[in-house]
Amino acid sequence: MPAGTLYRGREGMWSWVAHRVTGVLIFFFLFAHVLDTALVRVSPEAYNSTIATYKTWPVNLMEYGLTAAILFHALNGLRVIAVDFWAKGPKYQRQMLWTVVTVWVVLMAGAFYPILQETLRNWFG
């Protein structure tokens, strides 16, 4: 069996993959979001009944997921800018990725209750 023929990547490659996947996800959500907001030009009832689906628990969980995708894309995007424009960026790209991951975990923990409060209250009273 040939060893070492498959490049499995390191932090740089996997952050690139995650950046791409989150970017595509956010872009598709953006289409849906502009369309649902456009319903304010139809009637308050049309808008409110569509927004009601955003308040159901499955979509509420997806909002937390969307926040996770956006936060990673934003933080890692700042890292990409640092790699491109900061002279020492390429040297510290790995440390910057773990900084991104740490900040992401802290912010996601902080966003857990505020974003999911309605669902949590319904489930656990």
Binding site: Y54, T67, P114
Partner: peptide
């Protein structure tokens, strides 16, 4: 966009009861 979108998320999903407050009004 980091500032615009994160500000938007904080207003729409985090503050004042999260997504439940969003309505036509």
């Amino acid at each position: 966009l980091v500032f615009l979108v994160l500000g938007h998320l904080i207003i729409q999903l985090v503050l004042d009861g999260g997504v439940t407050k969003i309505s036509f009004a």
